[in-house]
Design a protein around this nucleic acid. Structure first.
Length: 123
RNA sequence: UUCGGAGUGUGGGCAUUCGCUUGAGCAUUGCUUGAGAGGAAAGUCCGGACACCGUAGGGCAGGAUUCCCCGUGAAAGCGGGGGACCGGCAGGGUAACCUGUCGGGACGGAAAGUGUCACAGAAAAUAUACCGCCCUGAGCUUGUCGAAGGGUAAGGGUGAAAAGGGGAGGUAAGAGCUCACCGCUUCGGAGGUAACAAAGAAGGCAGGAUAAACCCAUUCCGGUGCAAGGCAAAAUAGGGGAUCGGGCGGCCCGUCCAAUGAUUCCGGGUAUGCCGCACUCCGCUUCGGCGGAGAUCCCGCCUCGGCGGGAUAGAUAAAUGAAUGCCGAACCGCCCCUCGGGGCGGGGGACAGAAUCCGGCUUACAGCACUCCGAAAUCG
RNA sequence: GGCUCGGUCGUCUAAUGGUUAGGACGUCAGAUUCUCAAUCUGGUAAUCGGGGUUCAACUCCCCGUCGAGCUA
């Protein structure tokens, strides 16, 4: 799977900070939330995945987390640096193939990029 | 042969590329190389190892255990055999019951004591007289009448359960009241390692069920659980109130510690990293490792007993993955067809993810293989 | 991860092992009203699943399942 431990969110405080963010995008099988400029501008983006018990048993939860992390790893180069992401898995994600999930993730990314540009322009 | 059920085993394979966790090496933050989920890792139902609680000693309370023998195991448990009991079937018998066979499992004790047994029924545990049967019989309407008193558990009906069975004698009617048989109880004890129990003797028959009701007996159990526990760092108000002994855990005795002591409540802060922890033990060490011994698994050799080599998951918002290609079972569609199968295309694997470790139990499980049981069809 | 507790109509709750599992709110039907509300009457509706003990189980025991709580 995807990403080293240094690029994962590991503390409850970090999760709660991103969960309070306004940037939230629904895309069917999952929800993406992000926060820009939380870290150093040169640091790579960091990711945390939330899979509640509603998603399924331990096998399904871990499988979903692996898929999301793999998507993050493939496209981490184009994500804005110094940002934090939290992906909340929803039940029924298994109905989507890996390619479909990738399309959903890229769609979410384009909206994130627009939001990030708008945020920079507002400053 | 097909279908169904139960049990056991197995639990898709190979290659390439890109990644993750971790050990080692080189280098200095990159490269090389090794390792990387299960039979249930699950449920957390039992038993241990290990760690801490400053005493783990005694008693009570509480919890667990439960026919006998053998094997295995540290224990829990598991396997085999036997005994008694219960249920089905068959045979004998009027019945009670006996014999045989198949199956079942939390199978010590109801004769230490207490409790409960609804509804129905006269009566439910010190048995009882509703109907019925029988005797005496006031009375007057003299009858197949009958107030009242008494005898009776044979018959009726109720119930899950009604206090031995059917028969003969006996009687006013009846009754183990008496008798033989069967059953039962007590004594007994051939035999058996034992649970158990044959023969025999005595007794007219008591002693309903329930202990997965309290309980009694038996054999055992100190408590808490790796979020145990240790080290380091950081932060804060080392604050205020109450109690007077506290460690102690459910209680008592006992024991240990001790008034700048301890507990508890209120308010506030922190909840981070490392070790424990990754086959085990021993020795050496420059603390990085090295060597030896042992356990388990795999491979090779082989004189079939060993020898040689290799290996032993260790994460913590929690690694063990993704993509592509080839092979591939179930299943679906089409075609051929000697009706057994063959070809082409699609399809692409059940339950499920280590969390201190180990042993068991329970539960989930597609397909395939094997064994057993049942049903149907065909052949002999 | 470890430990502990619980599950009763749609919801909140009662029931000593013993009647047809009771009550309130809800819901449905009827009555009342010109209509609605309120009110009255009646109905509907449940023991988490499986097995065992017992004459009889919501209750006792075992296995599973779902859901809570505690624990640094």
């Amino acid at each position: 799977m995807g990403i080293p431990a240094s690029q994962r969110l590991r503390k409850q405080s970090e999760f709660q900070q991103v969960r309070g963010s306004k940037h939230r995008i629904h895309c069917g099988p999952f929800v993406v939330q992000c926060e820009f400029g939380a870290e150093d501008a040169s640091a790579p983006a960091r990711l945390g995945v939330i899979a509640s018990r509603r998603v399924g048993n331990a096998v399904r939860r871990n499988y979903g987390k692996r898929l999301i992390r793999e998507l993050f790893r493939r496209h981490s180069a184009v994500l804005p640096q110094g940002s934090r992401f939290v992906v909340v898995l929803r039940s029924g994600f298994e109905r989507y193939s890996f390619a479909e999930l990738e399309g959903q993730f890229m769609h979410a990314y384009t909206r994130i990029a627009r939001g990030a540009d708008a945020g920079r322009a507002a400053k």
